[in-house]
Design a protein around this nucleic acid. Structure first.
Lengths: 342, 342
DNA sequence: CTGTTAGCGCGTTCAT
DNA sequence: ATGAACGCGCTAACAG
């Protein structure tokens, strides 16, 4: 391997018999350089494939054009969609994204944040874990003047802009759809109510019941801990075998609804008709299962996009931003599982 | 905001009245430093939250601990799984991952590679696009002594280790399963045969037919261009309405199988029984649809893991590696759609 | 319009 | 066992 040392500013300067700073200025489009010099420099640079040494530039400017992204899980339809939104938006503005996953646990998140900070990211986009009730690892960013934007799963333990979906309204519309289709005994498989999203959806559920004069029963609300399929299955079994079974179930997320559906089918309940079912999040598979699952779309790409736009603006204006809460509207996707009660 | 300048080596040196190099050596565990000095330095560093400036370190060592990752799509169950594998493996070794997507088009891939190279990644893990028939943008990495490892979708236009799934064997086993279940007129919805994966699966399909004395008919093979659901639907319609319809279909990927299934159901073919169906890739949803879809799992996480291990080893030994081809075994996941022919 | 100088924070000789 | 000095490539402040 011959010495492939890349040409540097200095090389060009020597070759053209000018100073390195002139070359730098010519290349970076300063106005105080003669057209002729600029032409010469650019031509030489082009010809010799000059590529600025990013490491040196970053070092000098002490910024990296890197933004950190932390999500609970990468293999997850909604989050992978937001990741895509973040990356594409960053790309447009000349930023790059370091993607990490917390595994939805506190320690994973702390580790991710530490290494991201260590890598010198210019800012952070994060959807916090279910266990994030302290926020020192986030405060560390702010202490270094690096902005944070939270999205989807957020915590109030840190001051930062937040981009969320209007969970309350989304849940309200979802439950209303069930009601409109004739269901009146509506159960809810919720998440941990300390988590904002879960709380919002729970409140939307309650409000919809109330507005339509339907009764709210504690025993129709089951809290999922891990938000997985088996919880949907087990809780649904429990509900349907109780002395006062519901005729519809609104689930915190599609995966849970899938578990619910599995039980309902195994126990020969007609869905829809006998039991109505509604998910949340609009996973890809919801369109393909049978019956197809009605759900609430969260526009993940747009959320990632919005959060990233805000972050990059903050980075550019050297600001940490306000405690703003941006609520994005959801979209009710009506499919088969919530169709008319028979 | 008070000046939060981080403490540097020099700060510590001055405070302790030693030289910066001593501090550097003490912190990095050189042997030629007295225990006492080491103790003092470490204590001071600890107390004042000394964090090495990664930018400076990277600049000095001219390496970033960054590896670039290019996949066709992020929102894709298989690829998001491989991304996860890459990231987790990199993390274990102290590397970070810049994730990009090519959109499965040449220009997107070239752009991604250029910016990754510009960011100074130490190496590249890539699954090339369907349009990658030239490889200058990859050669650029090798020219800078930065290793590349390809995975899943690979090209021979560049010398590098490659991690793939044994498509031939996977397809063979898949088709054999259909045959074992009594199907004998087996069609294949393939991909573009110039693409390695598609070719491998096609060959495995042919070999399985041949080994079991079944006829191979050109008109039973349909080439999907975009590998999307609608192609599965349309080609299946075409096949089933032809004068000599097949009794089973082996699809290049689950999404195509889903389209096929949609048509078969809409036209009231029993699946399985009347028509057998087999996918490839084992998407998450395949487990949940009805009938559940038999498929071939590609162990995406492990592929990402393996590719990354190889890459990091190459980086560490300053090598570009050989043209090795690592073939990972697939796993046949038998579900309902390929069950016995009636 | 251009050159000179200086230094970002660190690792690494070469001395001692 | 330690310090002095240098330089990585680039940008910015200060002169002219």
């Amino acid at each position: 391997m011959s010495e492939k040392r890349r040409v540097t500013l200095k090389d060009i300067a020597i070759a053209l018999n000018v100073s390195p700073s002139t070359v730098s200025r010519a290349l970076n489009g300063y106005h105080s350089i003669s057209d002729e010099t600029v032409r010469q420099v650019k031509e030489y640079a082009e010809k010799h494939h000059y590529v600025p040494n990013t490491l040196a530039v970053n070092f000098r400017k002490s910024r990296t054009s890197l933004i950190g992204l932390v999500v609970p899980h990468i293999v997850h339809h909604f989050f992978s969609t937001t990741i895509s939104g973040v990356i594409e938006t960053a790309k447009k503005q000349g930023y790059h994204v370091l993607v990490t996953q917390s595994g939805d646990v506190k320690d994973g998140e702390i580790f991710a944040c530490r290494t991201l900070l260590g890598m010198g990211v210019d800012g952070l986009v994060i959807s916090v874990s279910n266990e994030t009730f302290v926020a020192e690892h986030l405060q560390d960013f702010l202490d270094e003047e690096k902005p944070i934007v939270q999205f989807d799963k957020i915590t109030d333990h840190i001051h930062s802009p937040k981009v969320v979906v209007d969970d309350f309204d989304g849940a309200y519309q979802a439950v209303k759809n069930l009601i409109d289709n004739g269901y009146s005994k509506i159960a809810h498989l919720s998440g941990r109510l300390e988590v904002k999203n879960a709380q919002g959806r729970f409140q939307g559920y309650k409000k919809a019941l109330k507005d339509h004069g339907l009764e709210f029963r504690e025993e129709w609300v089951k809290g999922c801990w891990d938000i997985i399929e088996s919880e949907g299955f087990d809780f649904t079994k429990e509900l349907m075998e109780s002395s006062n079974p519901p005729d519809a179930i609104f689930c915190i997320t599609d995966l849970v609804a899938l578990g619910a559906l599995k039980y309902l089918k195994s126990a020969d309940y007609e869905v829809p008709g006998k039991v109505g079912l509604m998910g949340f999040s609009n996973w890809m598979l919801s369109e393909y299962i049978s019956p197809s699952l009605s759900s609430v779309d969260q526009h993940g790409f747009e959320m990632g996009e919005r959060a990233t736009e805000i972050l990059i603006n903050l980075i550019k204006e050297h600001s940490l931003g306000e405690d703003d809460l941006i609520e994005m509207k959801t979209e009710l996707i009506v499919r088969q599982s919530s169709q008319k009660r028979l």
